[in-house]
């Protein structure tokens, strides 16, 4: 589904990602770990094609096509979707009118808005005055209606209270499994995802397939996401860096 080949990225002349190689197979959910400032968010922003993230070398292949130079719109049309950490305040743009446009395929958003307790936000300006948790629920509502084939989630659980995390987690699960119950067929039915998490809470809802650790703009290692999370929780990222140093 997604192949990142030797991707080096700069923001304002400063190198932020350094020769990243990473794949997400169709129907697989992969997780990105790493300390603050490692470049995890920058990687997702680059994949979506946002301005300011300059690809210096390397390629992004999505569904077999090179999307490295495509616009944000073209990537979205191809089936890529994102939930960012800090979406901009959209003064004047009502959540309802945005959902009306996103749901041009006719999907009904009211039911999901009720589930996510977002009905009372429909006539408010998107993100303006929203709390951290409200932003997450609003983003997830939009993303679910958009229904992309590959989902990029940047810390979906951060800032969400313990009650809402249940709603949020199950909505993410629904979005990612696409209604398919059969694990053996998820390559064909399920969605692909690349998820950034610090706490790992989202892993209670998403059966993640593979984990990656990002440090200083490089992929340090990959493995079973649960085992990795346990290691990070007990040893921290220092061990990862040391470990990598040993190989150099």
């Amino acid at each position: 589904m997604l192949e990142i080949q030797n991707l080096t990225v700069e923001i304002g002349g400063r190198r932020i990602l350094n020769g990243i190689n990473l794949n997400v197979e169709a129907g697989f959910k992969n997780v990105l770990f790493g300390p603050n400032g490692a470049g995890k968010s920058a990687l997702l922003m680059t994949l979506m094609g946002f301005t300011g993230y300059k690809v210096v070398t390397g390629k992004i292949i999505f569904k077999g096509e090179d999307i490295t130079n495509m616009s944000v719109y073209e990537r979205a049309q191809m089936g890529l979707g994102i939930m960012t950490q800090r979406p901009p305040n959209m003064s004047g743009v009502k959540l309802r009118s945005l959902l009306d446009v996103i749901s041009k395929n006719g999907s009904n958003y009211i039911e999901l808005a009720e589930t996510l307790d977002m009905v009372r936000f429909l006539d408010r300006d998107v993100n303006v005055g929203f709390s951290g948790g409200e932003i997450k629920r609003s983003e997830l509502l939009q993303l679910s209606i958009q229904n992309p084939d590959m989902v990029l989630l940047d810390e979906p659980e951060s800032g969400v209270d313990l009650v809402s995390i249940e709603q949020l987690g199950s909505t993410i699960k629904n979005l990612l499994t696409g209604g398919s119950k059969c694990a053996g067929k998820r390559r064909r039915h399920g969605k692909s995802a690349l998820i950034i998490t610090h706490t790992g809470q989202v892993l209670d809802y998403v059966d993640a397939d593979r984990g990656f650790i990002l440090c200083n703009g490089r992929v340090m290692c990959s493995g079973n996401p649960r085992e990795m999370l346990d290691d990070i929780k007990t040893k921290g990222y220092v061990e990862c860096v040391k470990c990598k140093m040993n190989y150099l």
């Binding site: 616009s71 901009p88 004047g92 945005l98 446009v101």
Partner: peptide, 29 residues
């Protein structure tokens, strides 16, 4: 118009023109 705002809407599947239109409409409303 902040580029970030336009691209936020483009990431939801709106063309650049649709995104600008939506922001302008909201701005004047």
């Amino acid at each position: 118009i902040a580029r970030e705002q336009i691209e936020y809407l483009m990431a939801r599947g709106l063309t650049e023109e649709e995104a600008v239109g939506m922001i302008v409409r909201g701005f004047l409303d």
